[in-house]
Design a protein around this nucleic acid. Sequence first.
DNA 1: CGGACTAGACCGACCGGTCTACTAGGATTG
DNA 2: CAATCCTAGTAGACCGGTCGGTCTAGTCCG
Lengths: 199, 199
Amino acid sequence: MQVIETKARILEAAEPLMLEHGFHAVGLTRILKAVNVPKGSFYHHFESKEAFGVELLRHYVAETTSCKRRTLLETDTAENPLERLFRSMDEGIAKFEQGGCQCPCLIVKLAAEVSSFSEGMRAELSKGFDEWVGIHAELLERAKTGGLVATNLDTASCSQLIHDLWFGAVLRAIASRSSIPLQTARQMLETTLATTPNS
Amino acid sequence: MQVIETKARILEAAEPLMLEHGFHAVGLTRILKAVNVPKGSFYHHFESKEAFGVELLRHYVAETTSCKRRTLLETDTAENPLERLFRSMDEGIAKFEQGGCQCPCLIVKLAAEVSSFSEGMRAELSKGFDEWVGIHAELLERAKTGGLVATNLDTASCSQLIHDLWFGAVLRAIASRSSIPLQTARQMLETTLATTPNS
DNA sequence: CGGACTAGACCGACCGGTCTACTAGGATTG
DNA sequence: CAATCCTAGTAGACCGGTCGGTCTAGTCCG
């Protein structure tokens, strides 16, 4: 069907634009021109710019979540859960530097901007965060059963620590145009998980 | 002088508006109407909206930094550094809940949105982050000399941990309209500082 | 008088969104 | 089987409104 294809094309074109400029700073005309789609088609597929934003976030979260799940939870590699976690961070740092220290994540980019503007978008952001925290919790559970962290580790809280620390570091890294915050976060996480505090 | 007063009035009116809507979503007309100042006056005091944003951030950072310094580093109270830190977090959580789980910090609100849009604003954001991390580093130093944390604590890294974890939690709290991320962050910080990992 | 500042009409550009016209393809019907 | 119709989708001119920014006129005060 041509329908789905056009819709997907618009979504794909919008992602990098909004990742760079944010939601309000990029107009529909700009997005649509990038894929040669007229306004009429857009408003056939989407109710409004906001509804489009909701679908964009849903699309992005679904894609990214499955990617994270693959990277962090796949079991057929020689790496243990903690090794996978830190390798993915290293890759994130490298990608961040290669991209000129621009925001690497659409959710981080839009979270603060749109969560007070659109309930629908806010809900998608929240769902995304929940899923990502959940992936880290699952990873920690596996690390625990593998004897890589203390048996009394509070995986639920600790997964939030990993997630929030990382995204806080991303925010500061963007503002300072430097990957140092990410490197520090990685290092602190490594020592923290090694020393294994309990509650 | 009326000049300075008008300028300050505009800045003060803009702060809550941008804190709620972000930079691009609120127009000059809206800001100016809130303080009954015509366009001409605005462009007499500020070169452009972007230059205005830079000054707004500078103003906000200066104000907030001195407030943080007072709260966290003032020495004439009975509290020790760590108690001050966690009390200020508790107050932050309470304020966040009272405010309907809206973004409590202009820097968090704008960091992702504008850091790729305006070099000037990005620089102010970065400076603000640096100062705030520095305050936490100083606080940890005092905690160390006070025997509240391990003597080998890496205060430089750990101050970044506190800062980034907190702001990452704020981001997630905004998206989920819940203070739970903040509470978890507080708790994790408490156990982490107590167990005192070293590098 | 002259400079700092107020005042607001006005500018072109662009915003999100609507409207009507058109087209292609599959189902319906004689 | 062909004519018909219906619908999904394309296409883009067009809408009122707002954007950031400019301009000129006026006011106030040293």
